[in-house]
């Protein structure tokens, strides 16, 4: 199994280190020719969604990546990655891949003074650490989007088919359960493809 990490800007190295800990190899996607390599899943890291959204277009990767996601490539977006996948951002006209039926709010907790750490339930795993850095949250998940975690009644993790997003940063803490959860999605997808 090999996971691609979108490495245009932000905390992509932290995801790569997480994957290494889990014994999974990774590759960095920095420009269009990197998309020709084969990989089983894609991680879109935290950073600035405006920067990543702009670079992904200008480096000619927007259409091919969107197509891959629409065709079922397992994708995991954290923070800015969540915003790149959301169909609608309440306080921003910019939309990016827009492949996921969620409505998000950017910088929903305010500026850096609003950044926080907490622990909350995730899927059926139980309490996990959650670090929110100038984070978004989700106000609406529709269609077959499934809410996996909420903090103070705000949705902070959602899965829809091949797509997983978290408003927090599992790559910044020691807990591997969210990455494991994603790798299971990738494994299931590989199994389906092989049938």
């Amino acid at each position: 199994m090999r996971i691609a990490v979108l490495a245009l800007q932000g905390a992509f190295i932290e995801h790569e280190q997480m994957l290494e800990r889990l014994g999974v190899s990774s590759l960095e996607i920095r420009q269009k020719r990197d998309l020709e390599s084969s990989y089983d899943g894609l991680i879109i890291p935290g950073g600035e969604s405006t920067v990543q959204g702009k670079l992904v277009r200008e480096l000619g990767m927007f259409e091919p990546l969107k197509e891959q996601i629409e065709q079922g490539m397992p994708v995991f977006g954290t923070c800015a990655g969540l915003l790149l996948l959301a169909k609608e951002i309440e306080n921003d006209d910019r939309c990016h891949f827009a492949t996921m039926d969620i409505v998000a709010v950017r910088n929903a907790y305010g500026r850096q003074l609003g950044s926080f750490y907490t622990e909350a339930d995730f899927a059926n795993i139980g309490k996990i650490p959650m670090t929110f850095i100038r984070a978004p949250y989700i106000t609406k998940a529709s269609g077959n989007a499934e809410v996996l975690a909420a903090v103070d009644e705000k949705i902070v993790a959602v899965k829809q088919g091949n797509q997983l997003v978290t408003a927090f940063h599992p790559e910044l803490n020691d807990n591997i359960s969210v990455h494991n959860y994603f790798l299971q999605m990738v494994e299931e997808n590989n199994r389906r493809d092989n049938k």
Binding site: A7, L8, Q9, G10, A11, F12, I13, E14, G46, G47, E48, V51, C79, A80, Q112, S115, F116, Y117, T131, I133, R134, H169, L172
Partner: peptide, 13 residues
């Protein structure tokens, strides 16, 4: 920790 984390998000920028 949270403040270090924000700097991590700025990396590559």
């Amino acid at each position: 920790e949270l403040n270090k984390n924000l700097a991590q998000m700025l990396k590559g920028g």
